[in-house]
């Protein structure tokens, strides 16, 4: 086992600054992940060639792959830094671990990117159940266990950004909603109460940047860390919007 880990980090001081690469050597410890490497760099920000530098800026929160914060491109693959274990990474690439920010969002600094667009997408598709009020109205309707089993995997989406990073249709120039927001829209359409406002979501999915922009590359599902059934969501979005369009046409 290597006693020293070599890491190359793509750095950028701000949104309008140019990017550069810095490499660091970190002492190996069993069980290390990429977040630990970044913590070690922060404590001693000295590059391999002995140059004092600033700590690398990065997002991190739960470190259990459930908050979605620490998404970045590790060894060329988008994923969470917390579950990117050094032992596995050096099997992929024995000489060098590379860390880079996601490319589909503007870089704030180093590995920190501005992902607010994904949350705005959730607004565009009304990704919520609209309630009359928050008073105590007793229990809701019974739910079939099979329906819960369908909804739960979709509800595990942590808006981390892996799917849109992999999606060839999603970029700063297009206003494509992306697989995550579309799948959330479908999840709420399939909810007994959420479904009452399905028209609103379907209308949003039929607007520019909606489901028609999906190129069916299926790259999204390959990188989703939570195995959210994105392809099912996209397929259903296609079907539901088509049906909705026919119905709207017939009722004219």
């Amino acid at each position: 086992m290597a006693s020293t880990i070599h890491i190359q980090v793509k750095r950028q001081d701000g949104p309008d600054k140019s990017a550069r690469f810095e490499t660091f050597d970190i002492d190996y410890e069993p069980g290390m992940n990429c977040t630990t490497l970044l913590q070690r760099i922060a404590a001693t920000p000295v590059t391999t060639d002995g140059k004092q530098t600033s700590p690398v800026a990065y997002d991190a929160c739960c470190l259990e792959e459930i908050c979605g914060a620490c998404t970045m491109v590790v060894n060329g693959k988008v994923r969470q830094a917390c579950t990117a274990l050094v032992d596995d990474l050096i099997k992929e690439s024995p000489d060098l671990i590379t860390l880079a920010p996601m490319t589909k969002f503007s870089t704030v600094r180093d590995l920190v990117v501005d992902r607010r667009r994904m949350f705005e997408s959730l607004k565009r598709v009304s990704a919520w159940v609209e309630l009359d009020d928050y008073s105590d109205r007793g229990a809701s309707a019974l739910v079939r266990p099979e329906d819960q089993e369908e909804a739960y995997p979709m509800s595990r989406c942590m808006t981390c950004g892996c799917c849109v990073e992999a999606c060839p249709q999603f970029n700063e120039k297009s206003d494509f909603l992306g697989p995550q927001a579309i799948t959330q829209a479908i999840m709420f359409n399939e909810h007994p109460v959420g479904g009452m406002t399905a028209t609103k979501r379907l209308t949003a999915l039929m607007e520019p940047g909606g489901i028609a922009d999906c190129g069916n590359a299926q790259a999204c599902v390959e990188v989703c860390p939570k195995e959210v059934p994105l392809l099912r969501g996209l397929a259903k979005a296609g079907r539901q919007t088509t049906l909705h369009a026919i119905k709207s046409f017939l009722s004219k």
């Binding site: 997002d59 929160c61 739960c62 459930i66 908050c67 979605g68 914060a69 992902r115 607010r116 949350f119 942590m158 808006t159």
Partner: peptide, 9 residues
């Protein structure tokens, strides 16, 4: 952090 990423998760 974006509220969806709070520690309650």
């Amino acid at each position: 952090v974006p509220v969806k990423r709070s520690h309650s998760v």
